[in-house]
Design a protein around this nucleic acid. Structure first.
Lengths: 149, 149
DNA sequence: TCCAAAAGGTTCATTTACCAATTATTGATT
DNA sequence: AATCAATAATTGGTAAATGAACCTTTTGGA
């Protein structure tokens, strides 16, 4: 459905403003739906994101600031998200021997198993929810990459 | 820049997952930057959004659930955002005579003036920040509308 | 007419986002 | 070697997101 109908608004003055709102709306649309996958596992979308980042580096450790770089948001949160995940036994935290300011984070077996369990579900969700064919998805990715300059 | 480089990740397994992450990343990219416009006016991006919705209906009142429908998120927040805006004198709230469960919200002169002040800034921001030409922006809008089915 | 269910809002509790300030460590400069 | 700026991470405070519980009013049957 067109974004104007979706949010019951008058036509946008210009395509740029419309694209902005459209992006916000679509992002919320997707996250809201996807988070239902994680709910039964007591995982927030952001915690899931952190776990994926850690798996990407596994078995090497990742520092908090390195997680932050790969995340979408702010530093202070990476710290707290890691803490939450540690409480759930999904990650291990240890002082970095090279630089004692840093903290090495590694995903645990439990974390890896949970991710694996979610992989198929998430993949299916994405394909089912994103009503675009392969070619259109590529177009979208190209446009988004270009958008950010 | 390509999203994989941006978040320093290995190539995505499929375009759908990539599009998902790309959308999240781009949304955060835009909101973070745009919110700097509102900061000096003590306005959050969501409060700005509510004000715009109210202006769209002005001079008619809008109910909380009607705001909610046009927003991206949840009901309980629309209620609180309206409260914040009322404290700042940007909106007026009154019992709806037709249905006393409902609450009529109207944007005030002060709110309208603030929006007007921001209009030019926001428009310029959008055009400057979204590095796409008119045609590409239209393409993006079409893809996003289709994505949501 | 009366009562149960539904609808509109608000409030609570928990989690997260964000900014600023703080602690600890490292590196560089003199 | 002593000092000082920069870096890594945590913490505190405030705003916001979210789901659930709750109150009030309305609606729609029996």
């Amino acid at each position: 459905m067109k974004i104007e109908e979706e949010i019951k608004q008058n036509p946008f003055k210009d395509g740029y403003t419309k694209a902005f709102v459209n992006l916000l709306f679509t992002q919320s649309y997707l996250v809201t739906r996807q988070s239902k996958i994680f709910k039964p596992h007591d995982l927030s979308p952001e915690q899931y994101n952190v776990l994926r980042i850690l798996r990407g580096q596994f078995p090497n450790p990742t520092t908090v600031s390195s997680i932050q770089e790969r995340m979408l948001n702010k530093m202070s949160n990476a710290s707290r998200l890691v803490e939450k995940l540690k409480q759930k036994g999904m990650v291990k935290r240890s002082a970095c021997p090279k630089d004692r300011r840093q903290v090495d984070i590694v995903i645990t077996k439990k974390g890896l198993e949970l991710l694996e369990l979610l992989d198929a579900e998430v993949k299916n969700f994405n394909v089912d929810t994103i009503h675009l064919d392969e070619k259109e998805v590529d177009q979208l990715n190209t446009l988004l990459d270009k958008l950010r300059g």
